[in-house]
Design a protein around this nucleic acid. Sequence first.
DNA 1: AATAGTATTTAGACTTAGTATAAATTTAAT
DNA 2: ATTAAATTTATACTAAGTCTAAATACTATT
Lengths: 130, 130
Amino acid sequence: MSRLNLTTQRKTILDLIQSCDDHPTAAEIMERLRMNGHQFAYGTVYNSLRYLTDAGLIRELKLGETASRYDGRTEDHYHIVCTKCGRVDEVLSAPPAEWIREVAAKTNYDVHHSQVVFEGVCYSCKHPKA
Amino acid sequence: MSRLNLTTQRKTILDLIQSCDDHPTAAEIMERLRMNGHQFAYGTVYNSLRYLTDAGLIRELKLGETASRYDGRTEDHYHIVCTKCGRVDEVLSAPPAEWIREVAAKTNYDVHHSQVVFEGVCYSCKHPKA
DNA sequence: AATAGTATTTAGACTTAGTATAAATTTAAT
DNA sequence: ATTAAATTTATACTAAGTCTAAATACTATT
Ligand SMILES: [Mn+2]
Ligand SMILES: [Mn+2]
Ligand SMILES: [Zn+2]
Ligand SMILES: [Zn+2]
């Protein structure tokens, strides 16, 4: 409701996340900030992550691990986790609308959102070159 | 790999979960055990939940809340969470195989499993009778 | 520019969910 | 009965995140 206020800390964290091609946890983000010479308070990182998430500039991913991950891609998409090495990849195809309609009909819910996490074995883990 | 060993505690907890028509958290399970006159150590409840999950007798659900929930239904199914009241309902229709094939092809993963959580507004929350 | 008011950051205490450890107890095997 | 293995118990500990109150930094107004 209130206008966007990107402080130095928030902007730095946003830039970092947007420049990632992976999906770091809060702890990983703090580590990378430190490596880039920044030193923000622990709580500030969490506050900023929440702020940026609420502002819709990043997405919080709950993939069933102990810690949330953060994603600079804000358009709707899903994820697949490799059970061998833990890597997280993007899934850009959306669940068929027909299926969602069916779920809404059967459950009597207004379905607003779906989160999907696939699990499997990634290409590198499937084809280990010695 | 080793044969099933259902101790009193494990059996009691399994029975409790199987008799539930909801998806209780560990804390809720402990509360219900206490109400039924049982007093197991905190750690035993967690150990039993893990044991029963590993044995495939119950399922652990990670719905993106802070605590895991447990489910006596072991056949593959999904869940929908009401964002107003927090209730969790069953979703019995599976994601279309065609979509999963597409995801596997595009990501180069062997897809073994998918976890899906829908969010929406349940019937009671949508039609509040005064 | 000075002042007051609001928002943010900081350090650190606290919470919640769950795991680890070591002693005590139970169960199973000889 | 004795020994060994598995389980339970009590309790300490960990990890991820929230909360709080004081210190700083912005904003608006005079
Ligand atoms: Mn992503
Ligand atoms: Mn269920
Ligand atoms: Zn892998
Ligand atoms: Zn509801």
